[in-house]
Amino acid sequence: MPHQCIECGRTFSDGSKEMLSGCPECGGNKFQFRPGGTSEPSTDPTPQMENSSVGLSASSEASAPSEASAPSEAASSTDTLDPTDTTESPADRSDTSDPTGSSRDTPSGRDATDDTESASDRAAGDAGEDTAQASARSDVVTPDELDRASREVEPSDQDDATEPRPDIDELRDELNEQFESIRIVSPGTYELNLMELYDRQEYIISLQEDGRYVIEMPDAWGVDEE
């Protein structure tokens, strides 16, 4: 199930409207996204599990099932892993000088997990910071780790690698589709999507300073168009 309440663990299917007004089970309003049910909570214990109290639970509650939160969060954040930001996990504090990194054959999501940990730590203040966290913030990632991190992300992109590159015209059309008709870059600077302006029936007659604009609705006057 793609969505899970981090309070009580109840799961929801993708697009479920139940969770829009909070978890019907416990009333919680924090959920995590777990794509495709790929991460089974208990199959992938990592060394830092014992440190999970500094992880997501910092933003949830101490009663949250920690074994469910950490690995799945890691799996879901792998795609956004930023190699330059992969500082050491708390459990690795004594290994940072190891050039081989041989003691770190842990799943790719670990570093990403640490990102969320440090983020939530910052949010929660300095309470409970230990030497591992201090080390994670101060140490520099080694080139070897960077290389490994980049390779570990690759499998998820394999579809892109095998597909032919889209035609440039298709790409432009796709981008044009996504653009607004008028984008206000900054006051006095505008980018216009001509196709969108041409295609839309409404007629923009006035732009406001605050980014709003006034349109003329052809149908508003009860006039038959053509």
């Binding site: 505008y190 216009l192 001509l194 302006l197 041409y198 007629y203 923009i204 007659i205 732009l207 300073e209």
Partner: peptide
């Protein structure tokens, strides 16, 4: 701003 409105008008 007026020029931008003008382009929108021209396209319309």
């Amino acid at each position: 701003r007026e020029a931008t409105e003008g382009v929108a008008e021209a396209m319309h």
